[in-house]
Design a protein around this nucleic acid. Structure first.
Length: 816
DNA sequence: ATCCAAACCTTTTTT
DNA sequence: AGGTTTGGAT
């Protein structure tokens, strides 16, 4: 967005009268205006319309701009109408951004790019049209993860599989993985299918799919998987879409999984796949052999920003592009318009530690700017406090809060910042945080609406049969389940049947009948009234609103408010179906972006965004890189974490600030942490180490008074540890800066002056001796007195008299 | 059927 | 540590 020559002009219309007049002459005379200001590579990416194109676009190189300009170009050249361009993104945010920018470029005239959206929303949309062909109805429900797990739990129970030993979550993960790879139950390798539940994994997957059909439901994975099945089994349908989409554009191609890849291949009429995981699906049979192969598909991506491997993304897709789409043109965008020199150098140097990459060199013509800073804190609380203060400083200096972001590795880190900002009165917004649509009252309300929309939606039925309480408890539900299972019908149908018999106690029976009648009534009313009005009636007549009105608990008022908000938000949609579709696919709520506030979000959700100042807390081993990534994925996991770090750094335009804390609370208990290896991998020339400014209490001069957190000297002593010395010895390895100035402890005299360490940064533990011996009585600033119980290098396990057993780095305790 | 306490499990990232 | 889910008691 800070690109020097951004587009200002906005009135290229899609269908200019091509003949005669000024427009034609203008076009002949000079390149269209929207092309000016593109650099040569960008321009090539925009203008190469025919045949497959892969754009390798590093961070901040104008990727979105290329995509949107390309669309504008296609339209203004009259090569396709808006409805003939398929343009897929990975996230809703990216889709929104593209729509927004297109709107700016094209003006309101081309409001509708009907086929611009996420993979899931577009696949879902296609699926609705042809639902019957895959044994669904067009009003099918899209299940979220929660529903999915509840359904699987039921299946496990029905099969007498111990939910403890074989958690539904795990099965959900497996099924998800299979679907990501485009595998139907029949196609799952039997070895893989049998790992779950003593060989019953495959059977369960089959049962699950069957159950989904009965419930008239699809989960996220199904949207693509069933789409692929649809295209495979019905070539006529496929051809219809192939003919419609004259141009295909794909954003973030490095994040596509196998299913998405197959889907794209089918639509792009590419020759039969030779994908390792998938032998030739459908032979492309277009009328004209020249159009039948390698259609106009343009994929944009950056292998260095592939951060969704854990979700089944195949970086391989981007690496194999030229092979998959013969004759593809590959264009590299390496000119970065976003970050200053130091930031870009730090990011590039870091990512260079990865082995699996295509390799790009990002360049900038910007000034060097401020160095990337690394700041150590005693614990996460001090980290939050330091960052809070730095933000206030920036604010005083006239920086806008909107241009400041805190990017965390894991969402639990956000809380500390929220707490801090609340006390400071600093406006902030959490992005992708606690989700509106996940709140209980919202889900309840939605369950009512879902059930109206799709009577077979058992999960919704179960959720609300007895909510508010109507005397239809476990016993009733269990009975309905039995009937439903025996006859292979949905619960509500079972309910309908059972009401006619006298299997139930009269009271429950009457209550159930009343509920069914209500739904019948609502479904009739649906035809004649607006969906917002219907929703109000439903919540009212069902007694749901009343339930909360009677509730005297503290949050009841808030919940009622949320329900109102829900109905308000429904208003933007045409009908109930459209609204339900939206909420199941777009689980985040935008809005509120206009006030000036600091953004707090995960690194993952920050992809594609940029800020003047970026704070990156929590750079510690185990958290970042995340232990689980290392355990489960080994080296490739580490590389993905490193790419994540690269993404984080490259979000910053002018200031990138990294933090690590020595102590962090993990699962409730405190543990001592080690600075991230990624810090070691930063180039010294572009980085400065500062100390935490969280408190100046040490020596008793600061505003906070002496604090246990102010053990700043400890960071000094970390550099005197064997780890630091090893680093000194290693200096120069790998061609890094040779001119290291050894750290000296004179910092106590000039505490605030930033210390610049040249050479790689090291503050790590090692396996060597700590100078303490077992049984030593020690004192710790925070935990008090204790005895050394175990020694592991410079990490000590100490039994504290008050605080119990803790692991601590030796430099934080002193012998007494 | 409803309520309360104890176990439990979480904390990677998202459509 | 904290919220959620489960199980048992009323």
């Amino acid at each position: 967005m800070t690109e020097p020559n951004r587009l200002i002009h906005t009135n290229v219309s899609a269908h200019q009268p091509a003949a005669g007049g000024i427009a034609a002459r203008a076009r002949a005379a000079a390149a269209p205006r929207y092309l000016s200001g593109l650099n040569p590579e960008q321009r090539e990416a925009v203008e190469t319309l025919d045949g497959p194109v892969l754009v390798l676009a590093g961070a901040g190189t104008g990727k979105t701009r290329v995509l949107t300009t390309r669309i504008a170009h296609i339209l203004s050249q009259g090569r396709a109408r808006p409805g003939e361009i398929l343009s897929v993104t990975f996230t809703n945010k990216a889709a929104r951004e593209m729509k927004h920018r297109l709107g700016q470029m094209l003006g309101e005239a081309v409001e509708g790019m009907p086929w611009l959206g996420t993979f899931h929303s577009i696949a879902g949309r296609i699926l609705r049209v042809h639902a019957e062909l895959v044994q669904l109805k067009s009003n099918f429900t899209i299940l979220d993860v929660d529903d999915q797990i509840r359904l699987l739990k039921q299946l496990l129970q029905a099969d007498n599989i111990d939910d403890k030993r074989w958690p539904a979550r795990m099965l959900a993960g497996l099924i998800d993985g299979w679907k990501n790879r485009g595998l139907t139950p029949a196609q799952v390798p039997s070895g893989e299918a049998s790992v779950f539940g003593n060989g019953r994994g495959g059977k369960l997957y089959t049962a699950y799919q069957a159950r989904l059909k009965i419930l008239n439901a699809a989960d996220f994975g199904d949207l693509l998987l069933e789409n692929i099945r649809l295209f495979r089994e019905h070539p006529d349908v496929l051809r219809q879409y192939q003919n419609r989409f004259k141009f295909i554009l794909v954003d973030e191609y490095q994040d596509t999984n196998v299913a998405q890849y197959l889907w794209l291949r089918l639509l792009s009429q590419a020759p039969p796949s030779s994908h390792a995981l998938f032998p030739a699906p459908v032979a492309a049979e277009g009328p004209d052999p020249r159009t039948a192969r390698s259609r106009n598909i343009c994929c944009v991506g950056d292998d260095d920003q592939s951060i969704y491997g854990w979700r089944g993304a195949e970086v391989d897709n981007i690496l194999r592009f030229e092979h998959d789409f013969p004759g593809a043109k590959v264009i590299r965008l390496e000119r970065n318009y976003r970050s200053t020199g130091h930031i870009l150098a730090a990011a590039s140097h870091l990512i260079a530690h990865n082995e699996d990459r295509l390799g790009k060199t990002l360049r900038t013509e910007d000034v060097d700017g401020e160095k990337v800073t690394v700041t150590g804190s005693w614990d996460s609380e001090e980290e939050a406090r330091t960052i809070g203060e730095e933000i206030e400083q920036l604010q005083r200096a006239g920086e806008r809060l909107n241009e400041i972001a805190i990017l965390v590795r894991a969402s639990f880190q956000m809380r500390e910042f929220e707490d801090r900002f609340v006390t400071l009165g600093l406006p902030y917004r959490v992005i992708g945080g606690p989700r509106f649509y996940e709140r209980a009252e919202i889900r309840d309300a939605l369950a009512y609406l879902r059930l109206i929309n799709s009577p077979a939606d058992d999960l919704a039925f179960e959720r609300i049969v007895n909510l508010p309480k109507r005397g239809l408890g476990d016993a009733t539900v269990k009975m309905l389940h039995e009937i439903a299972r025996k006859r292979q019908i949905p619960l509500s149908e079972a309910a309908r049947a059972v009401v006619e018999t006298d299997e139930m106690k009269p009271k429950a029976r009457g209550s159930l009948r009343a509920l069914l009648e209500s739904f019948d009534r609502w479904r009739v009313q649906r035809e004649s009234m607006r969906h917002t009005e219907l929703a109000e009636i439903v919540l009212d007549e069902s007694g749901y609103t009343e339930m909360w009105q009677k509730d005297r608990s503290a949050d009841a008022a808030g919940r009622l408010e949320n329900l109102k908000e829900l109905i308000r938000s429904m208003d933007e949609f045409e009908n109930l179906q459209g609204f339900l579709e939206h909420i199941s696919l777009v689980m985040d709520r935008d809005g509120g972006a206009d006030e000036d506030a600091v953004s707090v979000m995960t690194l993952h959700s920050a992809k594609g965004l940029e800020f003047d100042t970026v704070f990156l807390p929590g750079w510690e081993e185990g958290l970042f890189p995340h232990q689980r990534a290392l355990d489960e994925q080994g080296r490739s996991g580490l590389e993905e974490e490193r790419r994540l770090a690269h993404v984080g750094l490259t979000r910053a335009r002018r200031r990138a600030k990294l933090y690590f804390a020595t102590n962090r609370r993990i699962h409730g208990s405190w543990s001592t942490t080690i600075p991230s290896r990624f810090l070691d991998e930063l180039p010294a020339d572009n980085v400065e180490i500062t100390e935490s400014k969280g408190g100046s209490g040490w020596g008793g001069t600061g505003g906070y008074g002496p604090s246990r957190f102010d053990n700043i000297d400890s960071f000094g002593s970390s550099y005197a540890t064997p780890g630091w010395q090893r680093a000194q010895a290693n200096r120069g390895r790998g061609g890094f800066n040779e001119a290291g100035t050894p750290y000296n402890a004179s910092r106590s005299t000039s505490k605030r002056a930033p210390v610049i360490i040249e050479g790689e940064l090291i503050a790590r533990s090692t396996g060597s001796d700590s100078g303490f011996s077992l049984g030593d009585r020690v004192f710790h600033q925070k935990f008090g007195y204790g005895k050394v119980a175990r020694i592991d290098g410079n990490k000590l396990t100490i039994t504290f008299e008050k605080a119990g057993e803790k692991k601590v780095v030796d430099s934080f305790v002193e012998r007494v």
